[in-house]
Write a protein that binds this DNA or RNA. Structure first.
Length: 175
DNA sequence: CGTTTTTGACCAGCGC
DNA sequence: GCGCTGGTCAAAAACG
C-alpha cells in the first residue's frame, strides 16, 4: 500500500466526501443496470449514517428475488447469511481506505460496466471480511463499495493525521 | 525476502 | 446440458 495521502484529498477534506449513498441491497439491481436514479438520490446520507443493507436471513426468500436479476451476487447467501453493507462515494480514486488492511484477491469485469470490479479481503487472521469496489459507468465519479462481514479486530490506524479522519469513518463499521 | 498485486484458470449458480 | 456471468484460487510478477 502506499501512503494514505492518496485518498485523503478525495475522501476526507472536501464535503463531498461526506456524502455517501447507501442502498438497500441489490436485489433488484442485478442486471447491472443497478442504481436506478431514484435509488441514488433516495438515500443520500452523510457519512455518519450508513445503514445496514440487506438481509438477514432471507436467503431462501431473497433467493427468488435475486434470480430475477440474474446476478450472482448472493449465491452463497443461502448457506451463510452475512450482512452486507453498500454505499457509494464520490471519489476519483477507487481505493477508499477505511483503516483496515486489504488484500486484493480478484478483479473481474462486469457486463454493463466498463470498469472492472475489485475484490478485497481483510488480511487479519480470523477476519474474513470482504469488500468489493466498483466504479460506476454511469457516473465515473461514483464508486460503489460493498462490505461483507464484520471486523472483529481494531482498526490498524496508519497515521495520526489520519486518525481523526478515521474516527469519522468508523461509523460505517457495523459492530 | 516477505507481502501484495496481477492475471488467467477454475468453479458455481442461473437462464435458456 | 451448455453457456454466460460472477466470485475465488493460485502462480507468478511486482513492490518496498
Amino acid at each position: 500500500m502506499e501512503n494514505y495521502q492518496m485518498f485523503l484529498p478525495v475522501s476526507l477534506p472536501s464535503n463531498m466526501a461526506l456524502n455517501s449513498q447507501v442502498f438497500d441491497n441489490f436485489h433488484g439491481d442485478t442486471s447491472n443496470g443497478m442504481l436506478s436514479s431514484d435509488m441514488k438520490t433516495d438515500k443520500l446520507i452523510q457519512a455518519a449514517q450508513v445503514k445496514e443493507v440487506v438481509e438477514n436471513g432471507g436467503f431462501v426468500g431473497s433467493e427468488t428475488e435475486i434470480k430475477s436479476g440474474g446476478d450472482c451476487n448472493k449465491k452463497k447467501e443461502k448457506k451463510t447469511r452475512k450482512p452486507r453493507y453498500a454505499f457509494q462515494t464520490r471519489s476519483q480514486v477507487d481505493i477508499l481506505d477505511d483503516g483496515y488492511r486489504w488484500r486484493k484477491y480478484g478483479q473481474k469485469a462486469v457486463k454493463n460496466n466498463k470498469f472492472p470490479r475489485s475484490y478485497y479481503r481483510c488480511t487479519h487472521q480470523g477476519c474474513n471480511v470482504k469488500k468489493q469496489v466498483q466504479r460506476l459507468t454511469k457516473d465515473e465519479t461514483l464508486v460503489l463499495t460493498t462490505y461483507e462481514g464484520v471486523h472483529t479486530h481494531p482498526i490498524d490506524n496508519p497515521t495520526d493525521n489520519f486518525h481523526q479522519i478515521l474516527s469519522q469513518m468508523q461509523i460505517y463499521t457495523p459492530f
